[in-house]
Amino acid sequence: MIYLQLAYVFFKIGLFTIGGGMAMLPLIHEEMTAREWMTNDEFLDVLAISEMTPGPMVVNAATFVGYRISGIPGSLVATLSLILPSLLIVCLIGALWQRHRNDKVSLRILSIVRPVIAGMVLAAATKLLIASVFPLGGRGIEFLAGHTFDWRSVAIFVTVFIATWRFRANPLIALACGGAVGIVLMG
């Protein structure tokens, strides 16, 4: 039965996706193409659509594949199966975490992990900034090895940063303004 198969595959992807969907792209790609649920081109399209629409890539892929295979019921089965492993695991370990979060060992682990996370977020911000200021094959000034310098991205970045950092602006409004400026300026 197709629903069971969908449920099985996406439960498996949910269970083995650790540390973010991007790390598991090869597994998802293989599961999808080996079963002929998606062609290679469709897979790349879903990746592109995921960049443009809200939601994590894996969730989007599950909804898309489920829909292609058996309509809306299929997309619901695939998406719900994907999040089921996390739900089960959190319900199993949640109580344990609440009980031990203030133990000495937990506090020591967290005092190391907190700066690690902070460093990771800083790196992610920097990478994202570089990717948007020096896009590959953009229309701005030629810079290096096909990368171009985009002053509009710099302007948006600086404005959003100052607005949220200095003036505590609502991130949603900042995002909406950034997107609107993009529609007007980028092209």
């Binding site: 960049e51 443009m52 902070a118 977020v121 800083l122 992610a124 911000a125 920097t126 994202l128 900034l129 990717a131 948007s132 200021v133 896009p135 991205s153 710099v154 948006i156 970045f157 600086v158 404005t159 959003v160 940063f161 607005a163 949220t164 950092w165 991130p171 900042a174 995002l175 303004c177 950034g178 997107g179 609107a180 400026v181 993009g182 529609i183 300026l185 980028m186 092209g187």
Partner: peptide, 20 residues
């Protein structure tokens, strides 16, 4: 595509504030 070109540097700006 244009919308996303505007969103990317915005997210970078938001993230930098969070990181700091």
């Amino acid at each position: 595509t244009r919308l996303f070109d505007g969103l990317r540097p915005s997210v970078a700006g938001l993230l930098l504030a969070v990181a700091i």
